[in-house]
């Protein structure tokens, strides 16, 4: 445990140093990466551990984003409280949704979350307090003055995002190696056998979805911070697709893998813009090339390395006996 804390502090320190050395765009991308690591951790917990699929994690992120924005805008609370409320709102929502859809086995959770992601704009337009299509502002404010004039807004976002991501990953990794993580894996492996051992499998599945929703909600609030806005467009189906892709690419049941997944997700738009420039007809390509890259990566990885790139390597190593 102490070793783990030391490692996380070390990573945080390295991030701080890196944040000082790179330019503004990279700092911004760093904040995005931190956001993606939290979001991917929520998928690893849900899909990699408890064996359930959510196709609308973007929608759960939206719930968190709205929760944080409403708290911050209406109550004028400190920012940490807004992030906390993002977790609370999304977990509550996840618990309610999970009580219906995660309780029964089958494709119901996947379908329900997908439905939610598709209907998100309709829901946001329905309730006036959610601000409709343009959404709500989410402003965490300027960096504290004692950091000096050199300290930019994006660096402030990066600091907050990285700090939250480190804490979230630390807690997630502890949950996953606790009794709960083991129980979820047992249910995923064989739910009947797990029930024979006294596990209440449907209750544990709902719990997994609740925790995962809380994490997703936190990621949603971080995303809202980096774009200063909570709007249905930012949390659309494309985000949910990208998250599933990132998680599968980096190994669906590997928590450290989320960092790799986050890096890939941040650079896909950049690669696609570069490609679109080279190919011409920028408008169509800019709209659909990122989706094409994401889907092709998802299909290839789910067919050829469904358990992550690490697994094939391990298999390869195991094939050759030591003697």
């Amino acid at each position: 445990m102490r070793k783990k804390i030391a490692i996380f502090i070390l990573i945080g320190w390295v991030l701080l140093i890196i944040g000082d050395r790179v330019d503004e765009l990279r700092v911004y991308q760093g904040a995005q990466m931190a956001m993606y690591t939290i979001a991917l951790a929520s998928i690893v917990l849900l899909t990699g551990y408890s064996g359930q699929v959510s196709l609308g994690n973007g929608a759960m992120m939206a719930v968190g984003g709205y929760g944080a924005a409403l708290t911050l805008n209406n109550l004028g609370t400190p920012i940490w409280f807004a992030f906390l409320m993002a977790i609370v709102t999304a977990s509550l929502f996840g618990a309610l949704l999970g009580a219906a859809a995660a309780r029964v086995s089958g494709p119901y959770l996947a379908g329900t979350t997908l439905a939610l992601a598709v209907g998100l704009p309709a829901i946001a337009n329905q309730f006036a307090f959610l601000g409709g299509e343009p959404g709500l502002f989410f402003d965490v404010g300027f960096p504290p003055e004692r950091f000096g004039d050199e300290f930019t807004q994006y660096k402030w976002f990066f600091w907050i995002a990285s700090f939250i991501a480190l804490i979230a990953l630390f807690i997630t990794s502890n949950i996953l190696s606790s009794r709960f993580g083991r129980t979820w894996r047992a249910i995923r492996g064989n739910s009947l056998a797990a029930e024979l051992c006294g596990v209440h499998s449907s209750r544990m599945k709902v719990l997994a979805f609740t925790v995962s929703s809380g994490l997703a909600g936190l990621a949603g609030a971080v995303l809202a911070m980096t774009i200063s806005l909570v709007a249905p467009g930012a949390y659309g189906l494309a985000l949910s697709f990208a998250l599933v892709t990132g998680a599968v690419l980096a190994g669906i049941s590997s928590l450290p893998g989320v960092v790799l997944g986050a890096i890939i997700l941040v650079f896909i738009p950049e690669i696609s813009v570069a490609l679109a420039d080279r190919l011409g007809d920028a408008d169509k390509l800019n709209n659909y090339l990122p989706g094409l890259i994401v889907s092709v990566l998802l299909i290839l990885s789910v067919i050829f390395t469904p358990n992550g790139p690490g697994e094939n390597l391990r298999k390869h190593l195991h094939k050759k006996p030591a003697h």
Binding site: V53, L55, L285, L292, V294, L298, P306
Partner: peptide
Amino acid sequence: SGPAAVVAPVIATLGLLGLIRSIVGL
């Protein structure tokens, strides 16, 4: 086999949806 075996098919259909959508869009 492995943790992804149960979820792989449904994830693959999601990937296909994205693939067809981008092809149609392009």
